[in-house]
Design a protein around this nucleic acid. Structure first.
Lengths: 154, 154
DNA sequence: TGGGCGGATGTTATATTATAACGTGATCAT
DNA sequence: ATGATCACGTTATAATATAACATCCGCCCA
């Protein structure tokens, strides 16, 4: 299910990178935001806001929905987390510096969401947007289907 | 805001085409489904389930949420309507026979969602899916930004 | 040094979106 | 005509998200 061998590492790396990005942009990477990002990464896959809420409750006392949503908004706006609209779920961005080029292959069987960065698709999108004089600001590309592993199974 | 000059026509055309498609596929295009599709088209843009609900109430008595959602599910499954996940809204499909190739340019200013059919994007997506051995079943591509008209304004 | 500003979080309440579960009625093939 | 299946009605509630206002905290600078 993972593409990172030692899962702790990928969480730590993500946090480290987030720290650096926020520092560089003069954003406040608060305790809460850090905690939320950490949890998102620990889930290693699309995770629902209310699931995060529950998990946070065990670490910090009595977190309420707006608190989680605000942290998620911050992380999303700054490219550290993606919202997967078709699932109402959130997932850590593996390529925060190429964030706008990312899209997802979402397996309906196992729930895994593989993040891909592909400039062909991005440039095809940019091209049609240009043709229509449309100023694209955000692209949501979510491909659902069955991943390699799950196709094997049956 | 529209790309059809006489708006009545495009609603009538969509209903006509839906009728034919359902007949060809031996699907039941019931009164309710017809009514919902008609309303979606009349809105001529992304419309929320609960807004439909309200409008239906004026035509048919006391419609409840599951009724609308079931009709929308039917229409969505059969390619007559798209769900725009990033807006939690629904919109009539202008190209029901090329439905899987459609995507949207969504203006954050005026709310218009222009439907496009573009095989470049579709084939770019298909290519990466193939490379990853991913069996794509559904593609959600939603591009938000500002449309030509709204860029002019300010 | 303390006062005020702005951003982050806490808190309460509620809005919005969607579905589960079960009952009833219509349709259709045999 | 009867049983199977699908569509729809109905009640209740689940799941997702935000509005609005209070409080806290760091920071600037008078």
């Amino acid at each position: 299910m993972h593409n990172c061998t030692t899962h702790d590492d990928c969480v730590a790396d993500a946090l480290q990178q987030a720290e650096e990005i926020c520092a560089a942009r003069e954003l406040r990477f608060t305790e809460l935001r850090r905690k939320v990002l950490e949890l998102v990464w620990e889930c290693h896959g699309p995770v629902k806001a209310y699931d995060l809420l529950e998990k946070l409750d065990h670490r910090i006392a009595a977190i309420k929905p707006p608190t989680v949503y605000r942290a998620l908004d911050f992380l999303t706006e700054n490219g550290l987390v993606h919202k997967i609209s078709s699932l109402n779920a959130f997932v850590g961005c593996s390529h925060p510096l190429r964030h706008p080029e990312c899209y997802f292959l979402i397996c309906t069987e196992c729930g895994e969401a593989e993040e891909c960065c592909n400039s062909d698709i991005v440039s095809a999108v940019a091209k049609t947007a240009r043709e229509k004089d449309f100023k694209a600001e955000q692209i949501t590309l979510e491909i659902s289907g069955r991943c390699r592993e799950c196709q094997k199974v049956n």
